[in-house]
Every structure is written in structure tokens, then in C-alpha cells.
Design a protein around this nucleic acid. Structure first.
Lengths: 347, 347
DNA sequence: TAATGGTCTGCAATCGTTTGCAGAGAATAC
DNA sequence: GTATTCTCTGCAAACGATTGCAGACCATTA
């Protein structure tokens, strides 16, 4: 006594018409081909039977799955959940489902992901952590899979993306530190194969000059990854030069956390000995010790906009790719203060 | 010049056999029906052409989609990402994809989620935040959709679940506080319509008695939700009775965080004035101020086991549902210490 | 009245797999 | 030598939807 889920044939026979007529009625694009009252009648019957289109069958025929993939390197990085949530909600509201693909920690190559996408007739892709030259991106373009980058972008400029205004962010952070009275500011950036790592680094150099700050290469380094250990290692590296500095501008909250670790290991206090700024304002950095001064990025909104952009591109793959840039906002907390009178920060 | 993705017919004609033969070879269960060398030859050709089975077509025929849904209430709650990641990796390794359904914050009813599942031929469901009497659970059982609960379970005992050993957890926490010398211990629990909220509460009462502690109802309350504001409100509530207590045992890290807030508002120091324990050991609680003493739950492992259990149940829906219970581990950090000599904790 | 055009609906092929059934051929039994 | 069994492969019908084409019907025009 299995309750058979109503299919298009059931609806058709109940309405005394051919399945194709039902199909046309239920598809907004072809609904006008069927006469008004018959269409109404069919809709009624479909409702009555609780008919839902079978996406597998439909997808098989039309090469569409109403499914998009969202690729992230590591869900446990607190930056991503808000983005994913924004994406998922928006897609859901438009009848799409999101399948999650964790690229980073899994062995399967990017090629494997793309293969899976194609096999599953994925309609589009949201990529949350592209590198500046990313294979997935090329693959997608070659295969004609609609693609939107979020959070990071790539060097080539013909791909849609929703990103943060990194230049504004670095400028805000630097200005904040300068206003507090800092002059010797170290910089810990991110991997140079990411757009954020690259742009933030370049902007730090440029803006330092603009503000007339001394630029000491020994106080500037780029971490190998956006992780706490990498941040810790980076600060250890800088400290080895025994140069004076009173603040560190980091390109990422996790790097800032790593700085906390290194400072702790050296018996230094933040912010008394050294001020630290982060980037991203990931959840709970306000609860850290000390609460992190950082740049707030509207992560949810990033996700929402990326989803909207993707929906648009899936409708209309031909329109030129647009890049959307959202403005960050400085959030001042306990990790920054004016430099101490007695300046030697290295012990 | 569209590069046509190789399908089963291409492989068949290249091998000079019928598509059905190819299908049999490529399906482990039927592979033995085909002679050894022909099978080998076909496999070779399939590889050569880069053939991948089309899951839509396959699913249409077999009523399987190789897709499971994972339903969580809020991805930004740090407890869930590790679970989701564990699930996703495990499923992926077995050829399944995970679609994400955020149940909590979205308007769509649970009924709507189930509808979507059925329409999409979802093979199974992992539910990360069931309430003790949950509609989705009943729906799934009625519809015969394989289901595994993770993190929380339901009152009826015939449903598969992977959960934490809450009784052990509460006992460990209580023992820890007692060993530090605490005798007057407040309890802030979770919503009673969740299995964790209910079990932890009951266990706290039972274990207090067992250890010969005085049980003062004024020091015991259950928060309305597992959130910081709810935790803060709960502690405010308890403080209104102006009873003496030197420690708070909470049923959740976020509740513990809420306690930090309330204590801060009252000028109380943790752990000097009051010790606090959490539950879950969510990411980054070790960075809080003070670092939270809490119960570590292997969240990743919870996800992995849930996925494995689901895979098993999808293979074999008839086997009786098993409940897997993972042991938590006490992680002692900075939020607990021995009670002060001068005990008045309320100011 | 016949021809033309327009509107609507049905027919049947198709998407890529899977699988019950049948048949071909070889091997074994009598 | 025929009957029986066994092993292997092909045939064709599904799964549930979509869509180009054709044809039925009605209305309009010459």
C-alpha cells in the first residue's frame, strides 16, 4: 500500500488530457499555449493530487537540475558559515538547492569536483575561496558553467564576483592605527596566491607611502595561509629582526589570533605592548582576549549577493560579468590602543 | 563543437556491445554477470572515454539520487560546521552528495522541507537538531525515508541517532567542580523540548543527589534557547534570589558565554568570584576571556558516524535503529577554580 | 464554398540508465 | 545423439518529464 507520488500522467488522466498539456500548463514559459480554463482546471487537479514535478526526470530532459554547488575550502573557518547561509537562503527562496563541496581538506582534486558537477548537471557554482589563478574557474568558463566568486576573486577580470573592498579596509585600519599615534607598524599579510592576500599587501605598501609612514621591509611579511599557526610563525619571523614596532596590521582575524599566541609566548601584552588589528570580524572575535579590533565584512550579505548574481547569470549566461564590491567597516575593540611611552616592544 | 560528455551508449558502441552490458559491468552488483575479459575491456574503454554515470538518469530509473539532505537550524552556531563537515566528507567518500537545508531561520515549514526531499528523491536525511517530539521525524518514518539524528535525539526510541553521552558529561563536570571544592552550584540548562536540555537537566538533579549536594531549586533554571542572551537572562534570573553559589554548571557553551555577560554586568569576575563550565567545546572557546572549561564533544566524529549510520540504513532500511553514544571529555581551562575564601558571590 | 490562418492539443521521440526476459551457444548429463 | 542445464549477452520497456511537429477545430476572408 505504498502511497504513489502523483506524476504528470496521473494528473493528465485525471484531467482527461495528454501529459504534454499538463507539462505546458505547469511550466510558466509555456502556460500561455494552453487555453485559460483548461489551464486553470489542470492546475486545480495538480494541486489536489499534490503533484510535484520530479526534478530528476525534468533535469534529465532539460539538462537542468535546479541545484547549485557551493565550494568552500573549510567549513570550520568561521568566515564561511555566514556566507553559506546567505547563499543557501537566497537560493532556496528561488527554488534552488545548494549542495556543499568542501574542496580544501579533501583529496579529490578540483578536477574531481568539476566532474561531479557536470555529471550531476549542476546549474551553477559559487566558489568561496578562489586562488588568483584558479583551475576551477577556467574549467567552468570552458564548460560554460555559470560561476560566481565570493570573498575572493581571480586575476582575470571577466568573471562575476562579490567581494570586499580590500583597499578601503586596509586604509581604514591603517588610519585607525595612525590616529592612535602609531608610526612603526608591522604588517602580516595572507598568501599571495589569493586576491585578498595580494590586494591587501599592495594596498598596505601604497597607503603607507601615502600617509608618509616609514616602510621597513623587515616588518612586513606574508603568511603562508590564513591560519593561526601561520600567523604565529609570521610574527615570530618579524620579531627575529628585533626592530621596533608598536602595532601589527594583519590581513585576517586568524592571523591576528596567531599574533596573540606569539606575543603570549614572548610575554608581551596586547594592546599595551603591541596593538593588533584583524580583518573579517568573524563571529566571536569580540569575545577573545583581548576583543579584536578588526574590519567588519557583511558576510551574510556577501552570500546573498553572490546567490542573486548567480541566479541572474543562470538566467542569462551571456551578460558580461560584474564585480560587486561591498564596503567594510572598522570595528574598534580592545586590541588596539595608543603606543606606550616606553616603546621597546621586543623583550 | 560542444564536447559531448560520453554516455553509456558511446562506450557500448565503441566496445561493440549493447549498452546493457556496459551498465552491468559498471555496476559492481551485476558485474559478475559479464565474462571476465569482456568486462575488463569495457572498463578500459569507459576509462578511456572518461565515462561517468549520469546520476539523474540513473536516479530516475532506480529511484535513487545519491543525495542526502542535512538539516540544521543555524549554520552560524559553531557547533554545526564540524558536524556538517564530518558528514559531508564521509558521504562524499561513498559517492553521495549533501544538500544543505537550514531549517531554523527560514520560513518554510518542516513540511516544506520534507516535500522538497521527496520531490528530489532524496535518499536519506540527517537531522542535526531534532526536538524531543519532532514532526520531521514522524514524517520521515511514515514516508520511509532513512533518517539519522545527530547531536540530539527524540523521545521515541526507534530512530537511529548519534549523540553525546550527556549523563557522563554532566557527571564529569559536576565531579570537576566538586573536586575544586564547590558545594553551592547553580545550573543553567537548555530548552526542555530538546533531548540534550532534558537529559542534562535530569542528570544534574540525579547526580547532585548522588554526590550528596544540596539541591536548591532557586539555583536551577533552564534557558529558553541555546543562545547567549538566553544564558544571560537565565543567570540574571538566578541572581535575583540572592542565594549564595560559587559555580555555575551550564548545559551549553553559548549559555556559559551568556553567563560571562551577566557576570560582567554585575562586576563579578570569572573564575575568581564564580566558576563556570560549558558544554560542547565549540571552536574558539579556548580563546575566550577566560578560556572556557567545558566538555569536549568530538563533533567531527559525530558527523562521520552519523553519515556512516545513514549509509548503512540506506542500504538496509529494515535493520533496527541503533543509537550510538560518544563519550565527552572534560577540558579544564581558565573559567573554573577553587572557590574563594570569602564566599558572597552576589554583590 | 473553398481557402487561409490562428489557436489549441495530442503524438511520439528523447534525455541516459537499469533490468526482467529471452535466446544463443557451450557444456554437461543421460 | 538428444535433452538439460548453465553462462553470457542482447532486446526492449521502463523511469517522468519536455518539446518539435502535426493535425483538429474554429473563425475569417475572398
Amino acid at each position: 500500500m505504498v502511497k504513489h507520488r502523483a506524476n504528470i500522467k496521473d494528473v493528465a488522466s485525471r484531467a482527461g488530457v495528454h501529459p504534454s498539456t499538463v507539462s505546458r500548463v505547469l511550466n510558466p514559459a509555456t502556460r500561455s499555449m494552453v487555453s485559460e480554463d483548461l489551464a486553470a482546471e489542470i492546475t486545480r487537479i495538480a494541486d489536489e493530487l499534490g503533484y510535484r514535478r520530479n526534478p530528476l526526470a525534468s533535469g534529465l530532459r532539460t539538462q537542468k537540475s535546479y541545484t547549485v554547488a557551493i565550494v568552500i575550502p573549510d567549513l570550520t573557518n568561521p568566515v564561511f558559515p555566514p556566507i553559506v547561509r546567505g547563499v543557501e537562503h537566497t537560493l532556496d527562496a528561488h527554488g534552488y538547492n545548494a549542495i556543499l563541496a568542501d574542496s580544501g581538506s579533501k583529496q579529490r582534486s578540483e578536477k574531481g569536483i568539476i566532474e561531479n558537477m557536470k555529471a550531476r548537471q549542476i546549474d551553477g557554482l559559487i566558489l568561496a575561496a578562489a586562488r588568483r589563478k584558479d583551475l576551477i574557474v577556467n574549467d567552468c568558463i570552458e564548460e560554460g558553467i555559470p560561476l560566481v566568486l565570493v570573498n575572493r576573486t581571480v586575476d582575470t577580470h571577466n568573471v562575476a564576483a562579490v567581494i570586499n573592498d580590500d583597499e578601503l579596509g586596509i586604509e581604514l585600519a591603517l588610519k585607525h592605527l595612525i590616529e592612535l599615534g602609531h608610526r612603526c607598524i608591522a604588517y602580516i599579510g595572507g598568501p599571495q596566491n589569493t586576491s585578498t592576500g595580494y590586494t591587501r599587501y599592495q594596498t598596505f605598501l601604497k597607503t603607507s607611502k601615502k600617509f608618509g609612514l616609514p616602510v621597513d621591509r623587515d616588518l612586513i611579511t606574508n603568511a603562508k595561509a590564513y591560519t593561526e599557526p601561520a600567523g604565529e610563525a609570521a610574527l615570530e619571523h618579524i620579531m627575529r629582526f628585533e626592530k621596533k614596532f608598536t602595532a601589527i596590521l594583519t590581513a585576517n582575524d586568524l592571523l591576528a589570533l596567531g599574533c596573540y599566541d606569539a606575543m603570549h609566548a614572548h610575554g608581551l601584552n596586547c594592546p599595551v605592548d603591541i596593538s593588533v588589528t584583524g580583518f573579517n570580524d568573524m563571529p566571536y572575535v569580540d569575545r577573545f582576549n583581548p576583543p579584536l579590533t578588526t574590519l567588519h565584512i557583511p558576510l551574510d550579505e556577501l552570500g546573498v549577493q553572490a546567490a542573486l548574481l548567480l541566479l541572474e547569470r543562470m538566467q542569462n549566461p551571456e551578460v558580461p560579468a560584474t564585480q560587486l564590491r561591498l564596503a567594510p567597516r572598522m570595528v574598534i575593540r580592545g586590541s588596539t590602543t595608543s603606543p606606550a611611552e616606553t616603546p621597546p616592544p621586543n623583550k
